[in-house]
């Protein structure tokens, strides 16, 4: 099936199998491998991207469902070599270790602040419940998100 999807500002016209997941389209067709796959059950959130500005797990939808939509992945966040404030906050607060959950976590965190620009710690913890990390114990991820919120 033919789809037209704008990814990180660039429009892509592709022919995809109907069963292709959006995450596989991003990773394999567009070769944007920053977005990771961590589970089979939409539990981990490693594949979180933005669809028309909203954080979604790209393993939960088909590429054809994104036809005509605008997608942002981790690769599309930095502008002219300058990191997005959330990326900077993760760096400054050691919000990542092995890095595998990180792209999804950053995208989810930005989505969280879009909905609630000044969350409490509890709201950040509840808001990131769908994004799993095995390395950081979430402490510095939560700290990063709160730092990004307060720097706005």
């Amino acid at each position: 099936m033919k789809v037209s999807i704008t990814v990180n500002g660039k429009e892509h016209h592709s022919d995809v199998e109907p069963r292709t997941l959006l995450v596989h389209y991003i990773r394999e067709t567009l070769e944007l491998t920053g977005t990771n796959v961590g589970c089979d059950t939409s539990s981990c959130g490693a594949c979180t991207i933005h669809l028309n500005g909203e954080a979604v797990k790209s393993c939960t939808m088909l590429a054809v469902q994104a036809d005509g939509d605008s997608v942002t992945t981790i690769e599309g966040l930095a502008k002219d070599g300058v990191m997005h404030p959330m990326q900077t906050a993760f760096m400054e607060n050691h919000g990542l270790q092995c890095g595998y959950c990180t792209p999804g976590m950053v995208m989810a965190a930005i989505g969280l602040l879009n909905e609630n620009p000044k969350p409490t710690e509890e709201q950040v913890r509840m808001g990131l419940e769908g994004n799993l990390c095995r390395c950081t114990g979430y402490h510095n991820i939560v700290k990063s998100v709160l730092a990004a919120a307060s720097s706005k």
Partner: peptide, 22 residues
């Protein structure tokens, strides 16, 4: 000291085994 490895992980993502398509 902030981590030297972080900018890569935060901007393009790491190069894990499944990412070695090139």
């Amino acid at each position: 000291v902030l981590r030297k490895e972080d900018p890569k992980f935060l901007t393009t993502g790491g190069k894990y085994i499944e990412d070695l398509n090139d």
